[in-house]
Design a protein around this nucleic acid. Structure first.
Lengths: 126, 126
DNA sequence: ATGGGTGTATTATATGATTAATACACAATG
DNA sequence: CATTGTGTATTAATCATATAATACACCCAT
């Protein structure tokens, strides 16, 4: 339950991103219960309303569902879950390519840079 | 003088970015005069203070310099200019790798995605 | 049945970043 | 010398976000 908040993006969106990553790598499984709004707020030292907003966002995206008086759970719709990983990847690649295209970097040079950087941190991150 | 403003980042930073890109690809040369604050504001339909803030930021980074009552000019310090391109690239790569690492994508798969996306738009952008 | 845990909704406030409005000093030019 | 165009500075207004304070309905276990 470690989230490295940055100051740039809204907290509630960073929460959503956090859960999407967990889903993408299979750390959160279909139907699995996630912390209640208040519980999450406690753990992450944020306001319960911010937690609520994040969950509401996830619910609207079909990532979680909620039964009365129970903490929300990860959706069992595997089709939806499967898309999460792909979407995160596509989104990252798109953003990257968009930002780098205007600088006219040769393809192979660019790929080398990515490869080096990507593999270099293999140990650090854990 | 076309800037595709997004709603996400501050306008003044997008302006800075715009000039850095021009510098990186050599479209702006050492000592070259750039539009005055007010002129830029007119062209880009932004507030003059926003233009001022962008220029102030660039001045602090040593990218431009200003003589009294004259529009600012690109620095003649080629060392500083040379770094711009590299920094833009490194920054983009770092952000990309950071955002993608948490998803555990195989390196080669990732590089393929980047290659395809990067080369696909070769014509469109112009 | 009551106390504590759920989700949800409403309203208000604070905060910080950004943008806007205005004014000032200076120089060049006609 | 007055007008216009520079950069600069100060203050105000705006805006999105985040937080806060409450309140409500519901369920479950004690």
């Amino acid at each position: 339950m470690n989230v490295n908040f940055n100051n740039r993006d809204p907290v509630y969106l960073q929460i959503v991103r956090y859960f999407k990553e967990k889903i993408a790598i299979g750390e959160l499984e279909p139907g699995e219960e996630i912390p209640s709004r208040r519980e999450l707020a406690n753990r992450m030292k944020i306001n319960p309303n911010t937690a609520q907003r994040a969950y509401k966002e996830m619910e609207e995206q079909g990532l979680i569902y909620t039964e009365r008086n129970h903490p929300s759970k990860i959706t069992t719709d595997t089709k939806t879950l499967g898309k999460v990983r792909e979407e995160l990847i596509i989104e990252a690649v798109d953003m990257f390519v968009t930002s780098i295209r205007s600088i006219n970097v040769p393809v192979e040079e660019l790929l080398d840079l990515v490869r080096v950087k990507y593999t270099a941190n293999d140990d650090k991150e854990a």
